[in-house]
Nucleic acid binder design. Structure first.
Lengths: 263, 263
DNA sequence: TCAAAATGTTCATATAACGCACATTTGTTG
DNA sequence: CAACAAATGTGCGTTATATGAACATTTTGA
């Protein structure tokens, strides 16, 4: 939707409005609410009650929703497409073992992410043994492009038109007192990430948390990055920072070699 | 679609045909093919070229597909809904750690699955440290209800109408020479699983592989099971089998306690 | 290079989606 | 607890939209 290619290969009259509405109904379950009633869906989407009803019935008939009492909930069937996506990119087979290996060396969880519309989205995360705790099954969750290390590194891999458009059009959110909201500074930071080949962001998204990210493949070629995060103190010492950066870069090289196609 | 509740709470004229077609187009990417052209999608779905075109354009506009040259591919955006589903059920936060713990004790990977339409579908899998190899990111992948331990245990948790209908309506596939295709025998096996509280299936789905599954919660209450699999020899020794079963059952109890709601 | 086949796009028409109006359920107050 | 009121569910005529044949364009093969 935002900042797409200015390639008018399709006109707005080529869009199936009913299908688009149906997808919006499905997306209404995206905000974590497990169970929704018809009126709730109506409110979220803004569509007429009758419309919502027919679209929801269609989703039930297709096996994507179940009805319990008056509420509707997602079925596990939505997992299949996601699973196919990950399998198609070799996330499970090739990426995961590499992430696990370097994650073990580093003692930190490494995440792989790509860009989706105006956000970053996690594709994989290492399964480090010790930390049963922090594993929140982050695959599929999103984070802002402007205020995270992974996000800014991803921005740096995009072409200039996309970068400019996104930074200019997106109104920055003040997540923490340290969040940089000045577009000019953000542009500089992204440029710096391009120049030096990594991005370090401190306390701008979650207070007290720093992130470090590096791209996979040469800049501008791929659109996937890996990153780690930890308490702000984690990267304070020069030696520790260098070690993290070096390991991440080695991991990126390994992934680049193992990978056949990009996303 | 198959064997649904004979509760006519909606008629077939309440289904939005356009939306249903659009979903079928999306599902065309479900068989592992990463890139599809318009004619390919047309062949898979059986819809007119013009129809496919508009539906695909809609999907691109919604950010679920990308166009590269003449082909279309899924975008990472489909991960978000799946992610929300898993988060909503507490898979990442509560289930995963428990699976990991008992998996460590057992030295085998434990998987959690539920039933989706006429198949079983994996919701989670333990991240055991040693086995970087076998981790194929199985979350979301499906397996038959009739010829696997997990499947038969799931069948055993379903009400009798569903069970009967599915066993009678589904034509068994001869996956291996050992696959039981006689519906009467399958019915007996499912009944046995109900009676004894576990299901053991040997070499019926993949030659040389056995599976063992137990339900979570009391039978008939929930519709989720956990299971392990391994070479047929793994469960040969009585002592080893007993140990596996006991550990699985303890894991099931732990999950049952930790869980709030079922799927 | 040209023809033929396959794919992409347009546009009149039939159809299916829309949302009003009516029916039904749920919640609330005297 | 009854009777009203508000909110939600559903049938149906109207109209906007999806359809697919016809036309345009690209790709394939000779």
């Amino acid at each position: 939707m935002t900042t797409d290619n200015r390639d008018p290969w399709y006109s707005s009259r080529d869009i199936s409005t009913t299908f688009a509405k149906g997808l919006k109904v499905l997306a209404a379950f995206d905000d974590g609410s497990a169970y929704l009633t018809l009126p709730e869906i109506g409110n979220r989407t803004g569509y007429d009650r009758a419309t919502v009803r027919r679209l929801v019935i269609t989703l039930v008939d297709e096996g994507l929703l179940t009805k319990t009492d008056k509420s509707f909930a997602l079925t596990p069937k939505i997992l299949t497409l996601a699973s196919q996506y990950l399998r198609g990119r070799g996330i499970g087979a090739t990426v995961q073992p590499i992430l696990n290996e370097y994650s073990g060396q580093l003692g930190k969880e490494i995440s792989l992410a790509t860009v989706s519309e105006a956000e970053a989205i996690y594709l994989a995360r290492s399964n480090i043994t010790g930390s049963t705790v922090s594993f929140g099954f982050t695959v599929g969750s999103r984070l802002p492009l402007l205020h995270t290390a992974i996000g800014r590194m991803l921005l740096a891999t995009q072409n200039e038109t996309f970068r400019r458009a996104l930074i200019n059009e997106t109104s920055p959110v003040q997540y923490t007192p340290q969040t940089v909201t000045n577009p000019v500074v953000i542009k500089q930071e992204v440029q710096a990430a391009r120049d030096q080949g990594f991005s370090l962001v401190t306390s701008e998204f979650e207070a007290g948390v720093s992130g470090l990210a590096v791209p996979i493949g040469r800049l501008g070629e791929t659109k996937t990055v890996i990153g780690i995060s930890g308490p702000v103190t984690a990267f304070d010492e020069r030696q520790e920072f260098d070690h993290c950066l070096a390991t991440l870069q080695m991991c990126a090289v390994a992934l680049d070699r193992a990978w056949i196609e990009g996303p």
